[in-house]
Amino acid sequence: MTILSISNLYKTYENGHRALDGLTLSIQKGTITGFLGLNGAGKTTTIRILAGLTGKDSGTITLFGNEISPGDVASKKLLGFVLDEPLYFDWMTPEEYLLFVGVMYGLERSEARMRCEELIEFFDLDEKVDDPIATLSTGMKKKISLAAAVIHKPELVVLDEPLEGIDPLAARSIKETLKMTARNGTTVFITSHVLDTVEKLCDEVAVIHRGKVLLQCPTSEVHTKVQSTLDSAVRPTLEELFVDLVSEHAAKRPLSWL
């Protein structure tokens, strides 16, 4: 079942930069889909449009078959976001923030408190529970952001680079949460530069380059789909396949003086 469908999405910024050039993508329910692309490929723009923070020029986005429109309250209840910028009210403590987010998503205060306590324990935030979020490490902030994105048990969690700038332990707990989330029927859509993680974590991958999806298929089929020029005697990693795929479209002239 398709949970999210993006069709012919176009976006050109005021400075003339075309961020999305007819992006088309669909995400199946209960899967973890990795969204891969170089810096500036259009990943963050796609996610910000999904979140309603950036306007699109044209194209449609549907969630469970219903088109998402700006300010659509019903669709927001079904979504959880971890964006590439801190969105939290960082003067709050983690506990206050998670409780606040839970209540904002319409949970009863008692239910929100129960989930908040469980999330704090799960993400090992107990020691820092009384510190303002602003004083915490990047890894802690990412964990709080993820906890806030799942507290209302959304149908789809969208994460923009959740593993960037964090230590291996924090990364591990985030990956475990994403797997657990998917096992419980929540769909996960994640952008990441850590291709090794994407390969191990994701059921599907979509490769975006210059605002277009070049490839979308199950992770296990990437090897057969990409016409690799790599040495076929060794099974290439996703990173090698990714580089091979996008470098066809981003060939660079060598430096003449080096």
Binding site: G52, V73, K76, F81
Partner: peptide
């Protein structure tokens, strides 16, 4: 009220 207040609030299913 804080620099990211608007974005944070716009994530929630709230009636403006």
């Amino acid at each position: 009220r804080t620099p990211n207040d608007l974005e944070a609030l716009s994530m929630f299913p709230l009636e403006w």
